[in-house]
Design a protein around this nucleic acid. Structure first.
Length: 592
RNA sequence: GGCCCGGUGGUGUAGUGGUUAACAUGCCGCCCUGUCACGGCGGAGAUCGAGGGUUCAAGUCCCUUCCGGGUCGCCA
């Protein structure tokens, strides 16, 4: 800084500072050189202000300004002046004023950046990631990170007021079966043994409840070695919390409070409360999803009852085998070209649907490849059930319930997007409750926990654990915003015997269960309060607040889809010495 | 692991078998005292992701591979 001290941020200047001498610092966003007059847009974190240089200025400032280039770092002393009439720039927050430079210092020069530092630039994401420090100079990215800060700040404020204690739990912990693939860390001092990075602090936070902390939270980094998506990174952040002496309702109520507070504080949005609730069953039936986007209707309609004995063998046999025939009504799409319908067939096929039946409701009647197999009455029943009107396109999938839900749920979302039915300004929060405790894993031939194995079954269903695990409902709840799961949690098991029984239902032997989770079950025997909690995906939450399509835009240094950091070049090979010390031998099997 | 989209000067794109690969922007130089995506004139800048093949001829067609993105599986 060469002895200078910054007096103001660029973005705060306005007519109120007129005639003040200021010292500003920042980056050269643009230089407009008119020969005998130079304008420099000076950018710092807060915004942009115009600096004016003329040849009569002291400090040889004008000639120094001639040498300025994009992204040079400079300090400027000067006087704030109202702009001459006709030169006010209404597109700039500081556009009423400009700063007449009286002294200029070049703090650091810069190479020409590989892309413009501006919001509207459209640059390949791999270039942005390679030069992430330049990407993060863009005002939009800075807004995202600042928003993220505001959200976590508001979380801490709210939870502190509600007597939660922020506690850190280990990053190096124990690998456990169930759930996602673990990231492993070899132990140098324990040859052949590995730590695992936590998929979530689940067991530790339950142990904190046993310990009597009563209310815990943590803004916790979690790690899962699974394939990446727009909303999934191998390391991500959760707001993780747990409360003792509570029921489901207590947690849901305080979390609605918190979310409303976050949205008010961070983006000034008044959230409508209470949040609507859907049971898992209802969500799957009506929307084909356990995280329904309720910003538009187009609900799934079950037309099976009328088709049990219909002439269309595909429908009839699916129903006979216990499947369903359901449809959605794409209002006003009767004239969708055949080619586009074929595209929809491909779409549902990715979700396992073997076909997509369609009916165009035209002025000349219903056009469809399948009407010839249906009786007058069956067809009319379908049209009534679907509330079909002239101009509508009806789309049907017949399959086992899971495939019907997945394919029509995805089709509904796709059509909602294409038909512009989704109001981007809406914020539809809701809870999904009464999840099944288990789902059957055909590959492993056993029941697996839908939420996690520490979730309490609902009291009335405990008797079904042996006889009919598929019918057992869990004391679990997910918070959904606009079709994205932003949080999920449950009331936990706090009884050793019940926890042990649950592991047995999941196919563990008693020994395996104690080997893996013995410390939790032993703890349960020393006076464990009833407890439950929830975890929110911070990245997704901030992504939705920032109206971005990927959590990469709200993470400072994210990884690519192949889980690499293209800037730091991680992961990387390590020296043989490092491997030796860790008792590791790497045998990369190269494909021929 | 599967499917889909993309990879061409620094950046973003055009180029569907045939001259010297085009355009915009950025960059460099000169000119310019009210611009704000300043303007004018001139200039440099590309082994078309990589490898192989087909062809008289390949940015373009074929195969393999790498990289980025989306998605299914996967993600208690």
């Amino acid at each position: 800084m060469q002895g200078w001290k910054r007096s103001h941020a660029c973005g705060v200047l306005g007519l109120a500072q007129t005639e003040q001498e200021v010292t500003l610092t920042g980056w050269v966003a643009r230089r407009r050189d008119h020969g005998g007059l130079i304008f420099v847009d000076l950018r710092d974190r807060t915004g942009i202000v115009q600096i004016v240089f003329t040849p009569d200025m002291p400090d040889n400032a004008f000639h120094k300004a001639e040498a300025l280039r994009s992204e040079f770092v400079i300090a400027v002393k000067g006087k704030v002046s109202a702009r001459p009439e006709g030169t006010v720039n209404p597109n700039l927050a500081t556009g009423d004023i400009e700063v007449y430079c009286s002294a200029l210092r070049l703090l650091n020069a810069a190479k020409t950046p590989p892309f413009y530092i501006a919001d509207e630039v459209d640059v390949d994401e791999s270039i942005r990631l390679k030069y992430r420090y330049l990407d993060l100079r863009r005002p939009e990215m800075q807004r995202n990170l600042v928003l993220r800060h505001r959200v976590t700040k508001a979380m801490r404020d709210f939870l502190d007021r509600h007597d939660f204690v922020e506690i850190e739990t280990p990053i190096m912990t124990k690998s456990t079966p169930e759930g996602a693939r673990d990231y492993l860390v070899p132990s140098r001092v324990n040859p052949g043994k590995f730590y695992a990075l936590p998929q979530s602090p689940q067991i530790y936070k339950q142990l904190l409840m046993v310990a009597g902390l009563e209310r815990y939270f943590q803004i916790a980094r979690c790690f899962r070695d699974e394939d990446l998506r727009a909303d999934r990174q191998p390391e991500f952040t959760q707001l993780d919390l747990e409360m003792s002496f509570v029921e489901r309702e207590d947690i849901m109520e305080i979390m609605e409070d918190m979310i409303a507070y976050l949205f008010k504080e961070a983006i000034g949005l008044e959230v409508q409360r209470p949040f609507p609730r859907l049971t898992y069953g209802e969500a799957m039936d009506r929307f084909g999803s356990d995280k329904p986007d309720t910003r538009f209707a187009m609900e799934l309609i079950d037309v099976s009852p009328a088709l049990e004995s219909c002439g269309f063998k595909v429908f009839q046999s699916v129903i006979a085998a216990g499947g369903r025939v359901k449809g959605i009504n794409a209002k006003g799409c009767a004239n969708m070209p055949r080619r586009e319908i074929d595209g929809l067939v491909d779409l549902v096929a990715t979700y396992g649907a073997k076909g997509l039946a369609w009916m165009q409701v035209t002025p000349e009647g219903v056009k469809s490849p399948i009407t010839k197999f249906l009786s007058e009455g069956e067809l009319q029943h379908i049209l009534d059930r679907m509330e079909a009107a002239e101009g509508d396109l009806l789309l049907f999938v017949a399959d086992i319930p899971a495939v019907v839900a997945a394919s029509l749920g995805a089709l509904r979302l796709e059509l909602g997007r294409r038909l512009n039915l989704i109001d981007a300004d809406k914020h539809n929060f809701l809870w999904v409750i009464d999840f099944p405790m288990f789902e059957y894993d055909g590959e492993e031939q056993r029941w697996v926990a839908m939420h996690h194995p520490f979730t309490s079954p609902q009291d009335d269903d405990i008797a079904l654990l042996d006889s009919d695990p598929g019918q057992v409902k869990a004391k679990a709840y997910d918070m959904i915003l606009n079709g994205t799961e932003i949080g999920g949690g449950s009331i936990r098991i706090y009884d050793r015997a019940l926890q042990e029984k649950l592991f047995v239902t999941l196919g563990f032997s008693k020994e395996e269960a104690w080997n893996q989770f013995g410390h939790l079950m032993e703890a349960f025997e020393y006076g464990t309060p009833p407890h439950g909690g929830i975890a929110f995906g911070l990245d997704r939450l901030v992504m939705l607040m920032a109206k971005r399509g990927s959590i990469r835009d709200v993470i400072a240094f994210p990884k690519t889809q192949s889980a690499t950091d293209v800037m730091a070049q991680a992961p990387s090979e390590v020296s043989p010495k490092q491997l030796r010390e860790l008792h590791i031998k790497s045998e990369v099997v190269l494909k021929k």
